[in-house]
């Protein structure tokens, strides 16, 4: 815990709660994130990871709790607000508009315009080719609607959209779910690179193996509650598995309200 002693966290989510029709999807959960840090958010399907993170990205409105960015209280009511704070999200569903092409998806909501105020498709396509070239060098289908792309290509588009706008805080919800081993490795490289640039990353997964090697810390959720957080070097994979499955906090971890 001492690595970041004295530093102001990039993101602090404190005592977050949200319920849907009486079900506490997220119950009094707190988590923080420092610049250049990767925090793996783990838990079973339905543990509340995605819901917690969707509050940060502005997709859901919280019932309780406070979000601070750079130590200052942040007001996030919708995805536009979140983007204003430099928060970019790669959703599990990818959230792509299937019927338009790659460039249109990358710039959706933030289109480049010509001096006359019309869409500058050519400039957007040029920039898209540059960004996609970094992620997926063989990708050439810039004119096709995203619907016609393969799962891996669609995932690349979603990732490219998130890194296109100089995010400070990146949320990746199961970013490698549709990828093959080689592409997964590429995403791992990308995460290391972004981390080196000082970007804070929330990496969400239900599979511990995806995140353990990449994350600096893990935060484990169970039934909407935070079981605890731990630096990856202080715990073993088995211990983290114990946190995910049983909600049992090992000695190296900081227990949360959801711990046994």
């Amino acid at each position: 815990m001492n690595v970041h002693a004295g530093m102001t966290p990039l993101v602090e989510m404190e005592n977050m709660s949200i319920s849907f029709g009486g079900i506490h999807a997220v119950d009094n959960a707190s988590v923080d994130l420092f610049p250049g840090e990767v925090v793996g958010l783990l838990g079973h399907n339905g543990a509340g990871k995605s819901t917690l993170i969707k509050i940060l990205s502005g997709a859901y409105k919280r019932d309780n709790g406070e979000i601070r960015i750079d130590g200052k209280t942040a007001t996030i009511h919708n995805p536009r607000d979140a983007k204003g704070y430099g928060i970019e999200t790669i959703y599990q569903t990818l959230a792509l508009a299937d019927n338009v092409d790659t460039a249109a998806n990358l710039y959706l909501g933030r289109e480049l315009k010509t001096p006359w105020g019309t869409l500058d498709d050519v400039a957007m396509e040029a920039k898209s080719r540059e960004v996609m070239g970094r992620l997926n060098p063989r990708f050439q289908r810039f004119k096709d609607p995203v619907k016609q792309l393969s799962g891996g290509q669609r995932q690349s588009v979603a990732i490219a959209r998130a890194i296109l706008f100089n995010a400070r805080i990146l949320i990746m919800d199961e970013p490698t779910a549709a990828l093959g081993p080689q592409e997964t490795a590429q995403v791992g490289e990308l995460i290391k690179q972004l981390k080196a640039e000082g970007i804070g990353i929330f990496l969400i997964s239900h599979d511990i193996h995806d995140v353990f090697d990449l994350a600096d810390r893990v935060a484990v959720m169970k039934n909407g509650q935070m079981v605890g957080t731990a630096r990856t070097e202080d715990v073993t994979k088995d211990e983290v598995l114990g946190m995910i499955i049983l909600g049992k906090c090992p000695p190296g971890a900081t227990p949360g309200p959801g711990a046994l």
Binding site: A59, P79, K83, A97, R110
Partner: peptide
């Protein structure tokens, strides 16, 4: 949903 999440 994607349009909403894109901030439109």
């Amino acid at each position: 949903e994607a349009a909403e999440l894109a901030g439109i």
